[in-house]
Write a protein that binds this DNA or RNA. Sequence first.
DNA 1: ACCGAACCGTAACGTACGGTACGGCTTGTT
DNA 2: AACAAGCCGTACCGTACGTTACGGTTCGGT
Lengths: 217, 217
Amino acid sequence: MLQTTTEMMEGEGPTARQQDVLDAVLRLLVEEGDRLTMTAVARRASCSKETLYKWFGDRDGLLTATVQWQASKVRVPPVDRKGLDLASLTSSLERFASDWLRVISSDTSIALNRVGVVHAGSDKRDLGAIVLERGRFALGRRLKPVLEAGREAGLLEFDDAETAFRTFFGLVARDVQIRLLLGDRLELTEAGIDGDAVRATQQFLALHGAKTGPKAL
Amino acid sequence: MLQTTTEMMEGEGPTARQQDVLDAVLRLLVEEGDRLTMTAVARRASCSKETLYKWFGDRDGLLTATVQWQASKVRVPPVDRKGLDLASLTSSLERFASDWLRVISSDTSIALNRVGVVHAGSDKRDLGAIVLERGRFALGRRLKPVLEAGREAGLLEFDDAETAFRTFFGLVARDVQIRLLLGDRLELTEAGIDGDAVRATQQFLALHGAKTGPKAL
DNA sequence: ACCGAACCGTAACGTACGGTACGGCTTGTT
DNA sequence: AACAAGCCGTACCGTACGTTACGGTTCGGT
C-alpha cells in the first residue's frame, strides 16, 4: 500500500537473506498454490511477518518480487550467429524447444503461471503481465534473432518473424502448458522432451525450411 | 459438505430456475473472476443464499455445476464421413480451427479456464479436470474421427491420431490461450480468426497431407 | 380458506487471513 | 558497558466471506 520506496522497488536486487525468503515463497507456492499465507511464509522462511511487510510492502509485493526473482534466475545461453548451417540451426532450434519444454513442465513454472493467471483474473493484472513478459515474450525475443539469422543464411523462409515464432511455439508447446496448468498429470520424461523437441523442429523446418535441396523428413 | 444427495448430483440436469442461477454465476465469473462471493451470486440471481446451499451444497459445488452447465451448452455439429475429399476435409479442419479459436478467446472460456487453473492449484483438482475434459479432450474426441477418416480416404498420413491431433492443436492455438489466461489484451477479429484457421489447416496439411499430387502451399 | 413447501431477503456466526504492534534477542558501534 | 538497529516470535485487530438461521412471502394442493 505504501507508495514510498519499500525497499526492493529500487535498483539493486534482493539481499542474500531476502533471496532466501523469496526461495521459500517459491517452494511454498509450489506446494500450496496461491493460497499460501503470509504467516506460512514467515514460518517457512524463519522470519517475522513484520519483516516481510517492511521488505515487500504487502502480499502482492511479495509475490511480485518472487516472480521477478525466479525470472532473473533463468540464464540465457547466447546463440552464435556465425557459421550458421542447417545442422547448427537445427540443433539450436532443438535446444530452444527442449529448454522451453523443460521450463513449462517444471513445478515452479507451473506454480508461477498459476499465480499469474489468478492475478490476471483480478484487477491486479501485473503478475500475469510479468509472467508473460518473462516467459513467452522473452522466449520470442531470444528466438527471433535465430530465425532471422536462419533466413539470412538462406536456410529458412518466412515473411514475419513473429508469425514464424508463434508457429514454432505452437509446434513445441502444443497442449502441454494448458494441460499442466489444469492439473493434468502429464509425465514428461527426458527422452520424451528431447524427442518432442526434435519432432517440433523437423515440423518447423518442413514448414519454413528453404526449398533448396532435399529436405530432411 | 453434505454427502447426502444435495440435488444436482443426480441424473437430470438443473431446472430452469437453477439454470438461471448458473447463468448468473457464469456472468459474474466473467466479471469478477474467482473472487465472486456467494452473496454476490445470490444478489445477482435474485435468490437466497439458503437456496444456493440447498441446491449446490457449497461454493465448490456451485462452481462445479456452473462449469458443467456451460460445457453442456456446447453443441457438437456432427461431421459426415461420407464423400470425403480434400476440399471437404480442408473445410472441416478450418471449421474446427475457427470454432476452437472462437471458444478459447471467449470471455466465458477464459473465465472458466481461470477457475479450473485456480482449483487445480489447490487440492481440489476436480474443476481443472472437468474443464480439461470438456475442453481439450472433448475436442480431441471430436476431431480424431475426422483425421482417421481423412487417412482412410488417402488424404492424410500419420501414425498416431492422438499425436496428429496435438500437432493440429498446437498449430491452431499457438500462444493464444496462455496469453489470454495471463491477461494479454489479444484482439481476435473475425477475419483474423478465420485467417488463422486457414493458415493452421494449410500447415497441418503440409505436414500430414498425403504426398499424392501437388500439395497446396 | 387453510396448510405446508419452497424460496427470498437479511441478519448473525465463526473463522481465516492480511496487516500491525510489541517485547525480547542478537549484533555491530562507540 | 551502553546503546541503537534490525529482526524474530507472537499476540492482536479488523474485515471479508463462507455458512447457517430465521422471519416473511408466494404458491400449489386439498
